[in-house]
């Protein structure tokens, strides 16, 4: 008889239980039994933001080359867990796992190229060196769609972390198990603790706290209702959050729709630097 796994949260590189002591019963397709997952609270979210904040600046200072290698390493770790991930996703799970791994590889490659493509030198009409470079924003709040449970989540977080942000992500409500298996891949992938934090819980409960948290500078959400969308956009009135909401019916498995600069632009801040070149 196999032993079952206890699913917890992933915060600051560790696997704590929710401070609230609450859990929710979900189906675990990988073992054919039900499982209790953590029902994260506002306090868990705050703890996760704190962990993300602590990790973010060092992650942003890492070279694009290094961030790229670490994200690629994450793909390697996912490859090693592909059967477990696929089983947790249920029917057709392996295709989604493979597409998810490809998506991580795609964004891993952007880390040391985005600046060349989207930054630039500006030909000002005076004796100045002037250039515009992208930089990380800070802590990004990600809200994953219910389905597809794995590639939906990966699509929400890969762009922001590729650009040097740290994320606090809320997993699929209906199938949070793949997210927690992904957390195990992350924990063994050289990704510094706190760069990705994963919560399981309920969107309706946590969306207002995402929106209102002053330490979260940007939001990347999919699968949210119109009311949740409006609530998240109101976060701009709190601390000028940059809010990106993906269409409800987006096909996350379509590479042409879920890759490239559109998935990076909202999570970088452009800085323009002037320096005189005259003596």
């Amino acid at each position: 008889m196999p032993i079952t796994k206890t699913y917890k949260l992933y915060i600051g590189g560790k696997f704590p239980r929710t401070e609230s002591g609450r859990s929710t019963l979900v189906e675990d397709a990988s073992i054919g039994l039900s499982a209790h997952v953590c029902h994260a609270s506002r306090k868990d979210l705050r703890n996760a933001v704190e962990a993300a904040h602590a990790a973010q600046s060092k992650w942003a200072e890492a070279s694009g080359y290094l961030r790229g290698q670490i994200l690629y390493r994450l793909a390697e770790m996912m490859e090693g867990k592909r059967h477990e991930l696929a089983a947790a996703l249920g029917d057709g799970g392996m295709d989604e796992v493979d597409a998810s791994i490809d998506r991580v590889v795609h964004f891993a490659g952007w880390t040391d190229k985005y600046s060349s493509v989207m930054g630039g030198a500006n030909p000002v009409s005076g004796p100045y060196h002037n250039f515009t470079i992208p930089g990380a924003m800070g802590v990004v709040g990600c809200i994953a769609p219910d389905s597809p449970a794995l590639i939906g989540l990966i699509s929400m977080i890969a762009g922001p972390i590729a650009m040097g942000n740290a994320v606090v992500a809320l997993a699929s409500e209906t199938n949070p198990i793949p997210a927690m298996i992904l957390a195990e891949a992350m924990a063994t992938s050289d990704l510094p603790g706190g760069v990705v934090n994963l919560l399981t819980g309920f969107r309706d409960e946590l969306v207002p706290y995402y929106s209102g948290h002053r330490e979260i500078i940007a939001i990347h959400a999919g699968g949210v209702s119109d009311a949740q969308r409006a609530e998240l956009r109101e976060g701009a009135a709190v601390n000028m959050k940059r809010v990106t909401i993906r269409e409800q019916d987006l096909d996350y498995t379509d590479d042409s729709l879920c890759s490239g600069p559109d998935w990076l632009d909202p999570f970088v801040e452009f800085k323009t630097i002037w320096h005189p070149s005259a003596v």
């Binding site: 500006n122 030909p123 000002v124 009409s125 005076g126 100045y128 002037n130 515009t132 800085k271 323009t272 630097i273 002037w274 320096h275 005189p276």
Partner: peptide, 14 residues
């Protein structure tokens, strides 16, 4: 915008 050894520079290309 970061101005190094200068300040308040503006240009349409920037």
């Amino acid at each position: 915008v970061v101005w190094l050894n200068t300040y308040n520079q503006f240009d349409p290309t920037s």
